[in-house]
Design a protein around this nucleic acid. Structure first.
Lengths: 357, 357
DNA sequence: TAGCCTACCTGTAACGTTTCAGATTTGGGA
DNA sequence: TCCCAAATCTGAAACGTTACAGGTAGGCTA
């Protein structure tokens, strides 16, 4: 004889007990379980749990008590199948920006917010060689998320257009310039660049260069450029161009190129850098050229992880709180899903000059 | 009259067209769609798509062709509800280890593998103050993943015990010492510590200290300690203890404590550090004490992001390829889910001394 | 007394998939 | 010619949830 014991319990569900092997595999309670216990129909239970107006208060209390006692949790697959709601937010990012905890902080920030909700976070990285639209299309076509958070926003971003057309809630890290109102959170890169140049000017620097984002592809490049130019003009300083490198370049190449530039005749005496990772390679190049930070040349950099001030205390540092960005973005998509107008879900955070310990 | 047009298509599903507003919201094809197009029953289609033996080859070909042409993708909720399979792998990690791209590289490594499969990756961070069991229990109780990947493995890890008892596939980053065979991937920290001390000995250092993981809580602490002690003994050197700091300590406190220690009389002349982030603070402390790396004291560190050699070229660096760890762990859970024996899913990677450019 | 409203509750169907237990067809052997 | 097995295919049921269209009881009005 089989040593398994198959029985029907009162709810009609099957219990499968494996005599000694499986550890009393407790069956997960469903609406049916509660319905049986309360002597009600499943519909009533379903409604009672979501505080529907047509259910009596006494019933609601009773049902909710039972649900809590037996640890009922709605089956996500059931809900998803029936309602089409996935309770999933998808973070789509490119695998390049891994350096210096940008990704992790974003993930943590988002999770912090989602952990208070029924939403789960799925992460979908794509490599820079691939089409950024691909993961987006996949999510939309398979309906695998209720909302999307994405980074590396471009001025005329096809993803934004696509998602808007399809009516899928999303929030971007970074702004667009395409006349579509959508939720975003952005770091004020214009202010950063402006303030950076200002602080170099204050140190008496007059030939200033910037290591910026991948030109004009990504929106923040434009903002940096605007802030930079404005400050340069106001200070009637000279802008030195860095050709052949940007923040996406490999650290090794940044270092080499910097050594080259800083050994040349037209070298800048002040540099603005918009990534902590790049700044480190940049410094290596400067020092390889025999120059000293804080003496021959001053450096201002953005950082998203507390590290540059340990690296070279002379570097002027502005913090970008990516974790905060994550929280803002998560809140934005959630509220967008809830139907809030996109214009109310746009926020900016300002550069915060690092205070020395 | 209503300006919406509700019609039944041939499959019996409802199409809801919003005259001008919604952009031809194409209905997602289901098995039913294919069944209708092929003039078959849904059962046959379902089977044909998974190459079941009882379906004729001609039918299979036809069905698969149609499926491809109309871009059919199985509905995850349907599958999940029916089979209980979620097609989700959950990465559970603590929010502390954010520094220096550890988390991101892990995520990217895992995604790389999962992107070739029907699996999605969800990330569930928890803060160190919370019970590490909590997210695990949640996943098991709600059945929200088919497999789990987790880090910060402890010698006697309650999560490992719990998951094993419940028969949930998982893989850990790091080993346990509890007599349970389970899939893992680990960096050989014993070899790292051993080799590190060896290289310090080779530089003539004789008073050696180590900044290690949180004592004995996390397994890798033991491995580090073993490798360290063995090398110290073999080289008949002196081990200097670092009290009050470990790799979890805040960078600020590490710096301060290091300054203190390195200003004292019994300061080491060689240091092993097992985290790139901590190494940076450590260097700051050493230099604040007026000492020079490579002269007064030598430093060996592990890094998971290419940064220390730009920071101070004098630091001896061993790389831990966390992205590779992510790939290994993902492969391990997947194969575990497929029923492969746990003992075949245990792997180790070895420290790889960083080659100078 | 009938009629009707309100307050509360219920069964059935459906979402898309897989499994189960057949049903149908075909070909071959007797 | 008949029957059986093999090869294909099929409908119904079920997973857990919510939406829809009722149902019932009690009280109130006319």
């Amino acid at each position: 004889m089989d040593d398994r014991l198959i029985m029907k319990n009162k709810t009609g569900n099957q219990i499968l007990r494996d005599a000694a092997i499986a550890p009393a595999e407790a069956e997960r309670p469903t609406l049916k379980t509660i319905a049986f216990m309360a002597g009600l129909g499943v519909t009533t239970v379903s409604r009672a749990l979501k505080d529907a107006p047509e259910i009596g208060q006494a019933t609601k209390n009773r049902v909710q008590l039972i649900a809590k006692q037996i640890g009922y949790r709605p089956n996500r697959a059931g809900v998803r199948l029936r309602t089409g709601k996935t309770n999933v937010i998808s973070l789509v990012l490119n695998a390049q920006s891994s350096i210096m905890g940008l990704t992790s902080n974003m993930v943590y920030g988002i999770s912090e917010v989602l952990s208070q909700t029924p939403y789960h976070l799925t992460v979908t990285p794509y490599s820079l060689e691939n089409d950024p639209m691909q993961p987006i299309r996949y999510i939309v076509e398979t309906g695998s998320a209720d909302g999307i958070i994405m980074s590396r926003t471009e001025p005329d971003d096809p993803r934004v257009r696509y998602l808007t057309e399809h009516g899928i809630p999303f929030a971007t890290h970074g702004r667009t310039e395409m006349g579509i109102e959508h939720p975003y959170h952005d770091f004020d890169n214009e202010a950063f660049a402006y303030l950076s140049v200002k602080s170099l000017l204050a140190k008496g620097r007059r030939k200033i260069a910037m290591l910026a984002g991948p030109s004009p592809a990504v929106t923040y490049y434009r903002h940096l450029d605007r802030g930079f130019s404005r400050a340069i003009e106001e200070g009637s300083a000279a802008a030195v161009a860095f050709s052949g490198v940007d923040v996406d370049t490999s650290l090794g190449r940044i270092r080499d190129r910097m050594e080259e530039i800083m050994s040349g005749s037209n070298r800048p005496d002040g540099i603005v850098c918009c990534s902590g990772g790049a700044a480190i390679a940049l410094v290596a190049g400067i020092e390889a050229a025999g120059l000293k930070i804080g003496e021959d040349v001053d450096l201002v950099s953005k950082q998203s992880t507390d590290v540059l001030q340990w690296f070279r205390p002379q570097i002027i540092v502005f913090n970008e709180d990516v974790r905060h960005a994550g929280r803002e973005l998560a809140r934005a998509v959630l509220r967008r899903i809830a139907g809030v107008d996109a214009r109310e879900l746009q926020s900016l955070s300002y550069p915060d000059e690092h205070e020395l310990r």
